[in-house]
Design a protein around this nucleic acid. Structure first.
Lengths: 221, 221
DNA sequence: CTTTTTTTGTACCATTTCGCATTTAATTCC
DNA sequence: GGAATTAAATGCGAAATGGTACAAAAAAAG
């Protein structure tokens, strides 16, 4: 605690504010990093299962600092969730935009999703949106709004994929793109839940493969 | 508290044990009823969100009695979950056994599921299996086992339906029954989760309808 | 060097939590 | 009616929790 980072005489943060020297005692933490740690904890144990002490230990910030930086526990949870969504979106956006054949697009999306859901040192962590939907979203309208936004974001992205595939003649137009999109989201949800219950990756991949086969209209194994 | 049920000189319980008079002070509660109340609470607030005081208030039993009857909180949760599964199974078993056309079977199954997931005075409660998978199943191997059992029970029941439909020539055999079953389960999961986030019934029914259309191979709206 | 500003670190508080020990009540058996 | 048995009711206690008050520390500004 003696030769610390020496505050930040040009710290590599993309923090919009305060590119110049701040006035008082310098922060001993990096907000981004701390938020990432908080997210990890929340994903592992959920809102109720994560105490401020846990968060304090994981971030290295003591409780009053946590408070000052992120607000109370609920606010920290919300910020963590937004961070999660931002990360996921950043990872997905390229794939959703790339002009790959529909099957490959879906394969890449699910591959990425599995990576996210199965990660975690203390066992797979599933999808934070799904976990939040099952818990906090019930009583907290603001959180619920975010979750619904998350669902709809996926639904729309999938629908766009299918619509594009239909335009390109890859897919029959006899099934509505929205219907396929909901099936695609359902597949996301089922693997998220099953991952959380430690269903092995192989099985999840098999589920994904089968779902893709049906969605792209494959009629043979 | 004076003219109570007079213990049980032929109480209408299917309790295997003690059909005859018990020895000491009679119970002031009916285990079945109390367990139902506990289940309601757990479904609403989850394990961590439900305190023993809440359970005590809801069941009318004080904490020591709860303890004596069901064990500690975790055991009570497990018993509640088993009760949930038993109830759901009892409600579903007829439909899964009836020899209806596949589409009608699926419609009835999902209708029932929606009824379960959307019920609850304080908002829809979703599927307890899914909720448990997202929370307790992560760290508790015994609970996880039950949840996996729940998933597999649904998978198998659906697979049986599809297999039967194929035998009867209602469905093409070009898609594996297991694949369709996983899609059917995925649809269960997605409506469970979305219900919990208060997606309106209409939307859920639309998702179900679309999924059924695809699963039974309907190629037109 | 002093003041001002911002953050850290310690300690504390009120509340809630789970679990149990003990006493009191209601019933059957003798 | 008295002993035995079973359950209810009260209440305690130790631990954890979310949140905050307050003083010490580290920097910039004057």
């Amino acid at each position: 605690m003696v030769q610390k980072k020496k505050t930040a005489p040009a710290l590599p943060e993309a923090d919009a504010t305060s590119a110049v020297k701040r006035r008082g005692r310098p922060r001993a933490y990096q907000p981004d990093v701390a938020l990432g740690k908080a997210l990890d904890l929340f994903r592992k144990d959920g809102f109720a299962g994560t105490s401020l002490d846990d968060l304090s230990a994981a971030t290295g910030m003591n409780r009053p600092s946590l408070y000052g930086a992120f607000g109370d526990k609920r606010e920290l949870y919300i910020k963590s969730y937004q961070r999660y969504r931002d990360d996921a979106r950043a990872a997905m956006v390229d794939i959703f935009r790339d002009e790959l054949p529909i099957r490959q697009r879906l394969e890449r999306i699910y591959g990425l999703a599995l990576g996210i859901y199965l990660s975690g040192e203390a066992g797979p962590r599933g999808c934070f949106t799904v976990m939040t939907a099952a818990s906090e979203a019930v009583f907290d309208p603001e959180i619920r709004g975010l979750v619904l936004e998350g669902f709809s974001e996926f639904d729309k992205a999938f629908a766009g994929c299918f619509r594009r595939a239909m335009e390109k003649g890859e897919l029959t137009t006899s099934v509505d793109a929205t219907v396929l999109a909901h099936l695609a989201s359902a597949t996301i949800h089922t693997i998220a839940i099953r991952a959380r219950a430690q269903v092995p990756r192989k099985e999840l991949e098999a589920i994904v493969k089968g779902a893709i086969d049906v969605m792209v209209g494959a009629r043979a194994k």
